[in-house]
Amino acid sequence: MIQIKNLKKSFRTEEVETLALNNVNLKVEEGEFVAIMGPSGCGKSTLLNIIGMLDNPTEGSYNFAGHEVAGLRESQRTQLRKGNLGFVFQSFNLIDELTVFENVELPLIYLKMSKSERKEKVMAVLERMKIAHRKNHFPQQLSGGQQQRVAISRAVVTNPKLILADEPTGNLDSKNGIEVMNLLTELNQEGTTIVMVTHSDRDSHYAHRVVNLFDGQIVTESQNRAIGAII
């Protein structure tokens, strides 16, 4: 599903040019659950952003489901992203002014789905995430765990092929963290591909495969044997 070849990404500030990613090669098959790990500043999030088509690589190629993404214009990337990708962030990134229901509904609006269809889909996903009773609340009225469940609802409501999660448990206590990881595993088992950036060893054990980044390069890749059997 994802094929990345010789990918480079550099950032230029006034004085220095920083190479965030250096010759990254990565392949992710459909239905895989991949964790990306590494110390702060190693380029994890940059890689995730490129995979999520939020950013363009400086060099190299990125093929997503048969489409070459590198070099696409922003509007074309937006088009390709819509409905195919779901995002889960560490800080949830819910819109404070919108209710739970409206937050989850948002990606469907951008897909120009009819109102009745939207309602049906949003309610289904909220039921599934056990947060439907809070649909009229605003994000600040929810606990962290609940907020992340809303964020995951929003990520999956379009039935995306790929979910990108950036430290999804980083702002949660362990109980809520495990709950979120179980949700992601469940989605993966239903066929959704997941790429997750994490600092947490515990979370990485939920993945099929762990990719270790250091200074913008992949240093090791390891297969997990005992999926979901930790703790």
């Binding site: 509007s75 937006t78 995002f87 990134n93 819109i95 948002l106 990606p107 951008y110």
Partner: peptide, 16 residues
């Protein structure tokens, strides 16, 4: 700015 970012990630176009 955050809201705009989120909306864009979720597929909003520049004109929207």
């Amino acid at each position: 700015i955050k809201e705009i970012g989120v909306r864009k990630v979720l597929g909003a176009s520049v004109s929207q």
